[in-house]
Amino acid sequence: MEPVTLTVVSAGLGKPSSTRLLADRLVEAVVRRLDARTGELTHAEAQPRPGGGSVQVRVVELRDLATEIAHHLVTGFPGPALREALESVERADALIAVTPIFAASYSGLFKSFFDVLDREALDGTPVLLGATGGTARHSLALEYALRPLFAHLRAAPVPTAVFAASEDWAGGDAHTADLPSRIDRAAGELAALVGAAPAVRKPRDGSPRDEEVVPFADQLAALGVQ
């Protein structure tokens, strides 16, 4: 079993960024869940990465790619850093995508990145959706804006999306309200989908994917849904 590759796309604009903070919390929870699943395997079955883990994490900070994304939109050619980021998303076993909410939707930078992504790059990829905003009133943007976007890209968003408002970080402490429970629930759902290993995912070496499709009922069963 190869290590799971987890790519994180963060569209936060500031430093520090609450969007990146949420992304980091989601990564911690997902890695913990995936490592726990690997721990259930025998040492002969598992192939951990250096440091004892079974997950390889790559973080894509869109603020650092803003210029290359704009150039790609008008020229059709990605720069080196953007090309590497796009390939990281395409080859990932799972994706965490987090954006700030501006004007009741995802940020323009977030949308522009996925606009230049290959249309088949996310076919069948499990995705955990996250967003941040000044008030919880923006939380529905996850359902009417982000989820349709990833459905259009034929990804597989997990049922639980995570929104963090300003009050969730009160006093700089993430352990407020029910944010930790939402993060943990979403992480468990993503880990379950990764463990189900849908056959529709594109092979990492770029070879043609197996056209066998895992029945939807089997995918629900992997999530524990009756």
Rank of each mutant, 00 (worst) to 15 (best):
V55C: 01
P50Q: 05
D184H: 07
A155D: 10
H138Q: 14
L193D: 07
E87N: 14
V27Q: 02
T42K: 02
D178S: 14
R32H: 09
A165E: 09
P78L: 09
E2N: 14
H138Y: 14
P78H: 12
A29T: 01
L34W: 00
L13G: 04
F102T: 04
D93R: 07
V158L: 07
E211R: 15
P3S: 07
D184L: 03
A164P: 06
H71P: 00
P3Q: 07
S107L: 12
A85E: 01
S105G: 15
E167P: 01
L223M: 09
G79M: 03
A221I: 07
G195D: 00
V162Q: 07
R49N: 03
S10V: 01
P126F: 04
G172F: 14
A46G: 08
P157S: 08
L65C: 05
V200C: 13
L21H: 11
R32T: 07
V127F: 09
W169M: 15
V225S: 09
F216A: 13
L193Y: 03
G224N: 02
K202P: 00
G206M: 15
L223V: 02
T5K: 13
R58T: 11
D168T: 10
R91W: 10
S18G: 07
F150I: 11
G12I: 04
P50Y: 05
P80E: 02
D115R: 13
P80A: 04
D168V: 08
S105F: 14
H175F: 14
T67C: 05
D178H: 15
A46V: 03
A36S: 01
A186R: 06
R49F: 02
H138V: 11
E68V: 06
D24T: 06
V55T: 02
Q219C: 11
V200E: 12
L153D: 11
S112H: 15
S139P: 00
G195E: 00
E28I: 02
T135P: 00
G171S: 15
F114E: 08
L193M: 11
D115H: 13
L22W: 03
T67P: 03
A217V: 11
P100K: 13
L65P: 05
V225M: 12
P16V: 00
M1Y: 10
L223A: 06
L223K: 05
M1D: 07
L153F: 13
V27F: 01
L129S: 10
R32G: 06
L6V: 07
T132Y: 02
V200Y: 12
G224L: 02
T75P: 05
F110M: 08
A217E: 14
L140T: 14
E120F: 12
L140D: 15
V55Y: 01
T99P: 12
A197L: 08
A11C: 08
